[in-house]
Write a protein that binds this DNA or RNA. Sequence first.
RNA 1: GGCCUCGUAGUUCAAUGGAUAGAAUAGGAGUUUCCUAAACUCUAGAUGCAGGUUCGAUUCCUGCCGAGGCUACCA
Length: 477
Amino acid sequence: MVEYSSPNTNKPLHLGHLRNNFIGYSTAEILKASGYEVRKVQIINDRGIHICKSMVAYEKYGNGETPESANLKGDHLIGKYYVRFDQEYKKEIESLTANGTSPDQAKKEAPILVEAQETLKKWEGGDPETVGLWKKMNGWVYDGFNTTYEKMGVDFDKFYYESDTYLLGKDLIEEGIASGVFYKNDDGSVWVDLESDGLDKKLLLRSDGTAVYMTQDLGTADMRHQDYPFEKSIYVVGNEQDYHFKVLFLILKKLGRKYAEGLYHLSYGMVDLPSGKMKSREGTVVDADELIDEMRDKAESKTKELGKIEGFDREQAQALYHTLGLGALKYYLLKVDPKKRMLFNPEESIEFQGNTGPFIQYTHSRISAIIRRANESDIPTDISNNSDLETQELELIRLLVQYPEKIYEAAENYAPSVIAQYVYDLAKEYNRFYTELSIFGDVDRKITSLRVVLSIQVANVLKKGLALLGVKAPERM
RNA sequence: GGCCUCGUAGUUCAAUGGAUAGAAUAGGAGUUUCCUAAACUCUAGAUGCAGGUUCGAUUCCUGCCGAGGCUACCA
């Protein structure tokens, strides 16, 4: 099981989510290719104080606006109100502190925050009006997300929602207390002491009896294992949660869950901007939809400039621009080791030349032209009698046979970057071969056959390798 | 403060203890009567600092310097 994406429903997806989604999707594909039966799931964070913040801001300032009336994708509309909340909140804190309230107190007492907390209580109490608004707003967000997922080319077998799972895990608390793994404080709160494992004490149940994030994740893990009795379960979640997952897995082991051995946190680094970290509340994010559209446009202008797609109708051309723009973006985010933090410079990051998605796609297109020509001229594919191979041919064969072990390596390490590096090396080597040796030119027919067969094999592996990254390989570009 | 990551050409990335530390990009010089020049060739350029382990260290260990993260009865 691979869990990835798992967004909050209070703002649109951004560059960080793109990295998450691409890593998750690709890892799932790589595991499939290495023989696993894979389920892709996500757990949507659709409840909590942050959601209530958007709801409050919408009620106060929304004037009944809808995605249609605002001509905005639903997720962007909600994101607007989330930002608005933060602006108002800051204003209130300022005026409170100006009137002599201490900053700490002001942060707690700002009326708009209090209102959000009340909204959360109403939601938890099942207040029909609050729940109705929540459903309506989340529905808009899901519509927006679905559009983005489709654009990104990712999919899921099952969606989990925190509004369904946030009460889970309490049974596990009882179980843990009974077996002595957890203990209860005088105030009624429940803790686990992991100090003997080099970690801290961790709260699992508040003194008022309500669950926390960890409790919920414990319960969700059990539930998912019942839904799909997995051998391995991969959580694709950012590295700021390293500690959380360390604790989660350890607790599950202590509770004697056998499946805990197969749990893995695929921890990936943040995507930084030259200006530093992205902060959605402050609006300093690279929006996923905008970025994809920008890349598409860039692919369009580049393609038109080169003028190589004569005969394409409008639909084919549009599909190609999307394939190329998205290919550039995916490859860019996947070629880096997932564990590492990476820098995204909007001005110059994503190119179509050099070690890029389009370079590999271009190589595939080049080979496709060769294959078309070979089919027309009826080149035999019998290559049994070749003996003296050129170094460029040997080098290609050497790379081709590595493909299976690269899949294995990528699967072992949950590292799509292994595949990305490999297809790049193969494409680069093929381009050398292509430039330095003639396929149809002044050569023996047997040699032509050999080189055509080699080309076909390279095209196959490039196409399959790119597919593992979620990147399409066009036949012309 | 404690814990966890990470420091490699100007820049963005490679390199599971092994040979001369690879690419791309930016810079310089070239390649198109010939299969797609989104390509190819040549050139110059890097392991934060100080120790240690080892026949051998970008990789393992220690210290320092620098960057980021975690350290909520938030999720």
